[in-house]
């Protein structure tokens, strides 16, 4: 009896998974081609990336972190954010847990940025649990004037 219940649950979970993927595919215009470093659903920390004519804006949703303990590096076009979130209460022995959903421990995310960035001009700020990294684009190459000589 319980065996058949388990398979029912499995089937339901598969259906939910399928549904989740279908819902996700509704957003296909935004991510029709998946970045090879993109993380799966529920990865920590979540990341949003936007662009303006001047810069690439990266938002890392990393609450409850000492910003000094965050490691942000940029090599060529690869932005890496690494750190650790320690949850002290996990060590407590006098408590019972009912829900354990928050990420604990080390994390690392790598995001490939567009080609036209200037890796020398990067600013990072941390506020209310969001790390915002602005990477400026290269100064626009001035249009060259080509003279046409008459023969």
């Amino acid at each position: 009896m319980f065996g058949s219940l388990a398979s029912l649950e499995d089937d339901l979970l598969r259906q939910f998974d399928q549904l989740a993927r279908e819902v996700e595919s509704l957003f296909a215009p935004l991510r029709s081609v998946r970045d090879i470093r993109a993380a799966g659903r529920g990865a920590f920390p979540a990341v949003n990336v936007g662009v303006t004519p001047e810069a690439v804006e990266v938002y890392v949703f990393v609450p409850g972190i000492d910003p000094n303990a965050l490691e942000v590096s940029l090599q060529d076009n690869l932005l890496v954010i690494a750190g650790e979130r320690k949850l002290d209460y996990l060590e407590r022995e006098d408590v019972n847990f009912y829900l354990r959903e928050r990420h604990a421990g080390e994390f690392r995310r790598a995001i490939s940025l567009p080609e036209d960035i200037d890796p020398e001009r990067v600013e990072a700020t941390y506020r209310n649990g969001i790390l915002r990294i602005r990477v400026h684009k290269q100064e626009a190459v001035k249009p060259r004037h080509i003279e046409v000589k008459t023969g």
Binding site: N48, V49, V51, T52, E57, Y59, I111
Partner: peptide, 14 residues
């Protein structure tokens, strides 16, 4: 979330 004017989303998990 402070977004500069005219920003276009490139990728969004949130």
């Amino acid at each position: 979330i402070e977004t500069p004017e005219g920003m276009e989303a490139l990728y969004a998990e949130v």
